[in-house]
């Protein structure tokens, strides 16, 4: 892993729990419909602006910054889970 970077990768089950929690508490979302595979737009009825807000909430929840180019690729809960699990500085 090279020089000491204090990187800590989070446990996947924990991340999944937290990601789904964030999505369920978004006002426009019906919490009953939320699964790890849920697509924000086609399954949960959000638009691209809502998706930006959801990604912002992930940033706040995990204390990290998600670059615009990366954020665009997060379209499902699973995308978010994968991204965060792979991120060395997520909290």
């Amino acid at each position: 892993m090279g020089a000491r970077s204090f990187a800590t990768f989070l446990d996947r089950a924990d991340v999944t729990d937290r990601v789904l929690g964030v999505v369920k508490s978004f006002e426009k979302v019906d919490p009953a419909k939320v699964t790890a595979k849920s697509h924000f737009v086609s399954d949960l009825g959000l638009d691209s602006l809502d998706t930006v807000e959801v990604v912002m909430a992930f940033e706040d929840e995990f204390t990290l910054e998600i670059e615009d180019k990366e954020a665009e690729k997060i379209q499902t809960c699973e995308d978010a889970i994968n991204f965060i699990c792979a991120h060395p500085h997520a909290k």
Binding site: S48, L49, V52, E53, M56, D68, K69, A71, E72
Partner: peptide, 15 residues
């Protein structure tokens, strides 16, 4: 364009 618009939206929301 789309990225630009969404990026601006995000900055405005944060601000």
């Amino acid at each position: 364009e789309r990225t630009q618009v969404l990026a601006l939206f995000k900055k405005l929301m944060r601000a």
